[in-house]
Write a protein that binds this DNA or RNA. Structure first.
Lengths: 111, 111
DNA sequence: CGGCATCCCCAAGGATACTG
DNA sequence: CAGTATCCTTGGGGATGCCG
């Protein structure tokens, strides 16, 4: 999303997390990787609508942020697999709380 | 942030939550309101960097989404107070999980 | 005080083509 | 297959001014 960064503010942890998942497709990618490691092409298909350029860019950022791992298998044709790091798994767990809230929020009238 | 919406996908709850907090200052606002209700001008000061236009717009969206309540006191000068709804408090709780992850993530090397 | 209206800008993202 | 390179579009947000 783009979250205001206020160093020192007591919500900076949230801001940091938001910065990591800031990107239109990152949560979807994280979610898909939760099930199992995936190749680039698989992710393209699993995350409909994302372009190659943007998927590659966001994967790089997620890798830089240490939430996913990029494994290159030297073969022909090339094979690259992306997987969650332990940190990434923790992030997904934290996102689940948000997911539960969202599901509850979506209900027209909940109990 | 702007999160890909994939109706039917099993992460749609997360997407819904992300949509609600999508806005550069929304999390900060939510955070400030956690402590106590705040007036418009207070929020401006508490959330440094936000413009009047954008603050007003994001407050409207948060209100539309049912996470904050807008109370207008008919006085001169005008007085408007914003507060969290129960739904908003739940959202903040869910965000705390993310905040804890973020804090952990920020540590150079954690135990 | 608490806004809304207007104009502007720029970075994130989309489309397409090309490459190791 | 798994990307880069290039060009282009969009809209969220910044700055400023006016109003009840």
């Amino acid at each position: 999303m783009a979250v205001a960064q206020r160093p020192g503010a007591d919500h900076c942890g949230v801001a940091a997390a938001m910065a990591v998942i800031d990107g239109k497709w990152k949560v979807s990618v994280l979610w898909e990787l939760e099930r199992c490691p995936r190749r680039f092409g698989e992710l393209r298909r699993l995350v409909p609508g994302v372009s190659e350029k943007v998927l590659a860019a966001q994967l790089r950022e997620l890798e830089t942020d240490g939430v996913i791992h990029r494994e290159v298998y030297e073969q022909v044709p090339p094979r690259v697999e992306y997987s969650l790091t332990p940190l990434g798994r923790d992030l997904n767990t934290a996102l689940e709380a948000l997911g539960e809230w969202g599901t509850k929020y979506l209900l027209p009238d909940s109990a």
